[in-house]
Amino acid sequence: MIKIFRTIDGGIHQVNEAQEGCWVALVNPTATELLEISEQYGIEVDDLRAPLDEEERSRIEVEDNYTLILVDIPVIEERNEKDWYVTIPMGIIVTDEMIFTVCLEDTPILGAFMDGRVRNFYTYKKTRFILQILYKNATMFLHYLRIIDKKSEVIEHKLHVSTKNRELIELLELEKSLVYFTTSLRSNEVVLEKLLKVESIKHYPEDTELLEDVIIENKQAIEMANIYSGILSGMMDAFASVISNNLNIVMKVLATITIVMSIPTMIASFYGMNVNSAGMPGASSPYGFAYVIIFSLVVTLIAAFILAKKDLF
């Protein structure tokens, strides 16, 4: 899908034909659309396809008539009826006449620009537009990181009540999301540093503060991701130890109960042997059965008392 936007009278409007100063947004474009854009604007098809590869790394490539900026953006992925967080590439291609964005999904980062919810946004100010996209991307990382932190707190409260595998798996998914975020943010940081040195991207004094804000937000997101990742890792190790300890306690109690219950079974087994009854204590007495039961009960209670003293129950 191809959408074309242009700033008209200070507002963003979707237009039908691309002109100088326009923004062309490609969302999960088809091979035909990529070929048309490539032939019409002289952009390599491989560079247009690069953001559509989920494994593509963040980088900046400077060609003769355009510059490709590839960064990772956070997206929500639904698995098992729950929302999890991953990252996908997004490409920003800057030419002398206009700017292109290529992405696999309709991301809210670009949606804010399409809806006109970003202040001081003009499609013809390409350098500022790039920085605004990168700034919005960094703030979106921070937003999702806060959501991950709140989700981890909810799961932690659940684990205090019931230590089940389901909660641990959810923590593992959150930790995976943090690993994706940390890796992507560090790659984006390299892109930001290189962006300062790229001569094909014009730098204006009025955009210096915005560029500094982008770098600060990205570094803050990296620090938050590292902190949350460390907390989640420690939490998983702690609760894994708790579950293992609880299992050991259950096994200990079951083993103790087995020992106590084996005593009357053993005594009854002796009296059930096929031997001369004259040699069995209490065999000639009409109260012999009661004697055996009482004796078994007393021995069992003594064994249970001794084991309880050793804190084996």
Rank of each mutant, 00 (worst) to 15 (best):
V94G: 00
D96F: 07
M98Y: 10
I99S: 08
I99E: 00
F100S: 00
T101H: 06
V102E: 03
E105L: 12
D106F: 00
D106I: 01
T107D: 10
T107S: 15
T107W: 03
P108G: 02
P108A: 03
I109V: 09
L110I: 14
G111W: 00
A112R: 09
A112N: 06
D115C: 07
G116A: 01
R117I: 07
V118I: 15
R119L: 11
F121W: 01
Y122A: 11
T123D: 01
K125F: 13
K125R: 12
T127C: 05
T127K: 02
F129W: 02
Q132L: 15
Q132I: 01
Y135F: 14
K136G: 14
N137T: 13
N137W: 07
N137D: 12
N137V: 05
M140D: 08
M140L: 13
M140T: 10
F141Q: 02
L142D: 14
Y144K: 11
L145V: 06
L145G: 09
R146V: 11
R146C: 04
D149A: 15
D149Q: 12
K150W: 09
K151L: 11
K151G: 09
S152R: 03
E153M: 11
V154I: 14
V154H: 03
V154E: 13
E156G: 01
H157N: 11
H157L: 12
H157I: 07
H157W: 04
K158E: 14
K158T: 07
K158P: 00
K158S: 14
K158M: 08
L159V: 03
H160D: 15
H160L: 15
H160M: 15
H160A: 11
V161T: 12
T163Q: 13
T163R: 10
K164I: 10
N165F: 04
E167Y: 02
L171D: 04
E175D: 15
K176P: 03
S177V: 03
S177T: 02
L178D: 04
L178R: 02
L178N: 03
Y180E: 08
F181A: 05
T183I: 10
S184L: 05
L185F: 05
R186T: 03
S187F: 10
S187P: 07
N188H: 03
E189Y: 12
V190T: 11
L192W: 02
E193W: 04
L195E: 07
L195G: 08
L195S: 06
L195C: 10
L195F: 13
L196A: 12
L196R: 11
E199N: 13
Y204T: 09
P205Q: 03
P205A: 02
